[in-house]
Amino acid sequence: KYSDMIVAAIQAEKNRAGSSRQSIQKYIKSHYKVGENADSQIKLSIKRLVTTGVLKQTKGVGASGSFRLA
């Protein structure tokens, strides 16, 4: 599940300011076997996790910027 992968990526990075979408994508692609549409799936999952309150956006708008666990 992409949401689990995103949470794992943010936990692994341990950046106080949060993790960027690009760094999350890079982590997921190197640690998991994902399909061609992974980028758009990650983007959608990040937006969903922010609206449900699992992630907090520290910089930027939408799916860009930095995110950390709430």
Rank of each mutant, 00 (worst) to 15 (best):
G53A: 02
S19E: 02
A9F: 03
Q57M: 13
I42A: 00
K26Q: 12
T51M: 14
K47N: 10
G53M: 03
A70W: 06
Q11T: 11
S19W: 04
A63L: 11
V7H: 03
G65H: 12
R16G: 11
A8D: 05
K29P: 01
I46C: 04
V54Q: 04
K26M: 09
V34T: 05
Q22E: 14
E36C: 11
R21D: 07
G65M: 14
Q25L: 15
T58I: 13
K33H: 09
I10M: 05
S66I: 13
K14F: 06
V54P: 00
G18Q: 04
T51F: 09
V50P: 01
A17W: 14
G18N: 03
Q11Y: 08
L44S: 09
I10R: 00
A38F: 11
K47M: 13
L55W: 00
S20N: 06
Q41M: 14
K1A: 10
T52Q: 13
D4C: 15
D39K: 07
A70K: 05
I24W: 02
T52H: 08
A12D: 05
K56S: 08
E13I: 13
M5A: 03
I46R: 01
L69D: 03
A12I: 03
M5G: 02
Y32I: 03
V50Y: 03
L49W: 02
S66A: 10
A9Y: 04
G18W: 04
S19Q: 03
K14M: 08
Q41R: 11
I42F: 05
K43L: 14
S3G: 09
T52V: 09
G62V: 05
S45T: 15
F67T: 03
V54R: 05
Y2L: 10
Y2E: 00
T52Y: 07
S23W: 13
I42D: 01
R16T: 10
S45L: 10
Y32W: 07
S19G: 03
Q11C: 15
I46H: 01
L44W: 08
A63N: 14
N37F: 07
G65L: 14
L49F: 02
A8Y: 05
G62Y: 07
S3E: 15
S40E: 14
N15P: 02
D4M: 11
L49I: 00
I6H: 01
R68G: 07
K59Y: 09
T58M: 12
V61R: 13
K26V: 08
D39T: 07
L49R: 01
S40V: 13
Q25C: 15
Y2R: 01
V7P: 01
S20Y: 02
Y2C: 15
I10Q: 00
S40G: 06
I6F: 00
Y32R: 02
Q22V: 08
T51R: 14
K43R: 11
V34A: 04
R21F: 15
V7F: 06
A17I: 08
G18V: 04
Q11D: 04
K47R: 09
K14S: 10
S19L: 10
I28R: 00
I24L: 02
I10E: 01
K29G: 03
V54G: 02
S66Y: 14
Q41S: 06
D4E: 13
Y2A: 01
L44R: 14
A63V: 11
K43G: 10
I42L: 04
D39C: 14
Q57V: 14
I24A: 01
G62E: 05
G18R: 02
R68T: 13
A9S: 02
Q11A: 11
E36S: 13
I28M: 02
A12N: 08
G53F: 03
L49G: 00
A8L: 05
I10S: 04
Y27P: 00
I46F: 03
T52D: 10
V61K: 14
A17V: 07
Q41D: 10
Y27E: 01
V61F: 12
V7K: 05
V7N: 01
K33S: 09
T58C: 15
N15W: 05
G65Y: 15
G62D: 09
I42T: 01
S20D: 06
A8S: 06
T58G: 07
S23I: 04
H31D: 02
R68A: 12
V61Q: 11
L69S: 03
S64H: 13
Q57K: 08
V50T: 04
I46M: 04
A8N: 05
H31F: 05
N15Y: 05
A17S: 10
T51V: 12
I42R: 00
K14T: 07
A12R: 04
A38V: 09
K47C: 14
R68Y: 15
K43A: 14
I28S: 02
S45A: 15
S20E: 03
L55I: 10
Y2Q: 01
M5Y: 07
S23Y: 14
G60M: 06
V7L: 12
V54L: 05
L44T: 09
K1F: 10
R21C: 15
A38Y: 07
H31V: 05
H31S: 02
S3N: 10
F67W: 06
K59E: 07
V61H: 12
K26Y: 07
G60K: 07
V34K: 01
K26I: 10
K14E: 08
S3D: 15
N15T: 07
G62P: 04
V7E: 02
K33T: 10
I6P: 01
S20K: 04
Q11W: 07
S19V: 12
Y27Q: 01
L49A: 02
Q57W: 15
A17K: 10
Q25N: 09
G62W: 07
A17F: 14
G65D: 14
S20L: 03
K47Y: 12
E13T: 09
K1G: 08
G60W: 06
A70E: 04
K26L: 11
I24V: 02
Y2G: 00
S45I: 12
D4Q: 10
V34M: 05
N37E: 12
R48Y: 14
Q22R: 09
Q22I: 09
F67V: 06
M5T: 01
V34Y: 03
A70S: 08
G62S: 07
Y32F: 13
K56W: 12
Q57I: 12
A63H: 11
I42Q: 01
L44E: 13
R21K: 07
Y32Q: 00
V50S: 02
D4Y: 13
A17Q: 10
A8I: 06
E13H: 08
I42K: 01
G62N: 08
E36F: 09
R68M: 14
K43M: 13
K26N: 12
L55R: 02
K33Y: 07
A8H: 07
M5Q: 02
G18M: 06
K26H: 10
K26D: 13
R68L: 13
R48W: 15
N37Q: 06
L44F: 06
H31Y: 05
Q11V: 11
Y32D: 00
V34W: 03
R21E: 15
K33W: 06
K47S: 09
I42P: 02
G60C: 10
K29N: 05
I28H: 01
K1C: 15
A12C: 14
Q11P: 00
G65N: 12
R16Y: 10
T51I: 13
G35A: 07
K26F: 08
S23L: 03
K56F: 12
N37K: 08
A70G: 05
Q11S: 09
N15G: 08
R16E: 12
L69K: 03
S3T: 14
T52S: 13
Q22L: 10
S45K: 05
A17N: 13
A38R: 02
E13N: 12
D39N: 09
K29Y: 09
R16P: 15
V61A: 10
K56R: 11
